[in-house]
Design a protein around this nucleic acid. Sequence first.
DNA 1: TTCATCAATTGGTAGGACCAATCAGTTTGC
DNA 2: GCAAACTGATTGGTCCTACCAATTGATGAA
Lengths: 254, 254
Amino acid sequence: MAKEKRLYHVVSDRIRRMISDGTYPPGSRLPGERELAERFDVSRVTIREAEIALQALGHLSIRTGSGVYVLDPPRAGDGSLPFPSVSAFELTEARLLFESEAAALAARAITPEALDRLGELVETMGAEHDDEASQQADREFHLTIAAESRNAVVQFVIETLWKIRTELQAVREVHAAVCANETAADRGAEHEEVLAALRNRDPLAARRAMQKHFTRLLTSMIDVTEEKAVEELRRKAMASRQRYLNDAAQHRTG
Amino acid sequence: MAKEKRLYHVVSDRIRRMISDGTYPPGSRLPGERELAERFDVSRVTIREAEIALQALGHLSIRTGSGVYVLDPPRAGDGSLPFPSVSAFELTEARLLFESEAAALAARAITPEALDRLGELVETMGAEHDDEASQQADREFHLTIAAESRNAVVQFVIETLWKIRTELQAVREVHAAVCANETAADRGAEHEEVLAALRNRDPLAARRAMQKHFTRLLTSMIDVTEEKAVEELRRKAMASRQRYLNDAAQHRTG
DNA sequence: TTCATCAATTGGTAGGACCAATCAGTTTGC
DNA sequence: GCAAACTGATTGGTCCTACCAATTGATGAA
């Protein structure tokens, strides 16, 4: 026979078999770790190790305080994204930091063509109330600036952040809520401010304008989000906002 | 933040990151369960659970009596790195921007433990002339600060930049040349300046110190690089440097 | 009924103990 | 001198026991 398998592998196989033979069909809850341990005559640790392995493979769902549940057979091509699990807040905070710097970089050498294009995009965003077109324009606006930073790494990072934004369900939801809540005038004014700074080739102003844009986004999120973690979120957001207001003040008085 | 994750998930993520950022490359053996437990300040059980999950996913190979080994990244369709082809200069410029912001973030809530660790690392870098140990310490220094930003996206981005650094041959060469050229005193002083700012919980000073560190790196690159694209490189570097000197001046006078 | 409260259940983590496989260095036997 | 056998330190594997934390459902008050 095959080489000696570790005990937790054996247990893992037994559980898997009981799932596939219908003893524990998808959706059902299997016995508690303590009971399984006794039934298989192994320690609870071993049961846990087996279940955790099966969870990693997508066969089980372990819920603290509730129990362990059998999932539907995992779909073939899973394609796990390499992105970390993040909150909408973290993502926006990161964009605040990075895109502001990109704007400052872009101001140093942005081309007239890019400036024209940005102008068109701002108009589109102001005119269209169609979510689809407006969001598309918003995206191109930010990515154009990223490209004009003339730094492939900066551009790559910012594009990656946008990719994360579209791939993470939770993040999309929050953003949709925020967009519904904000006035087109606000967005428009902020984008125009960024554009104006770029036209003037003023890195500091460009950074400041972009920071302002994202800072408002962050604060909007506080109003929109109404989950359990609000306190924590609000605390972080306010701290972050305050930090940037202070920075901006120092810039201005400088 | 996302929902509370179980500890073994956190550990699992940390290990996965250390693998992907090059701390433990494929084929290498990672520290024993007992050592990892102590290092992460969790129990051995938790380490085991995390490693077993990663084994199930095909990232690790656990061999009884021998150790735990990192496997080649499981082929997930693409295989090729999504990294853009970049120059050492671009990469360092991006790090200047992003890591400075991360340092500012970290200053707001860095833990005493992290501060202690950073202190040790600075000492290691000062003492060791061994390239291996010193570089390792350098990386951990920067990645620790990234982690202390308490923003998973920021952390993810900076880790990605380090990954790019180790994976791109050309970048590595330039860095090696720069390292050979610089005095240990310079590096040490700069790192200590960053650390001091973090200890004082001073975001602005932290950002400034980190900018100073990377700005020197950028200028060093100019001296070292003597290739065809020097003119362009020099022009960009000088512009970038000037920009940050101006910024710093404005900060100070603010 | 509705909602706050509490206690039992269930998973999560810690720490200590001991077993079993492995491996490097040493000793032994030829 | 060299290979086989031994030895001990190291590392993963398993168990136990105790306690923490999230969940759930029963209980009782409004």
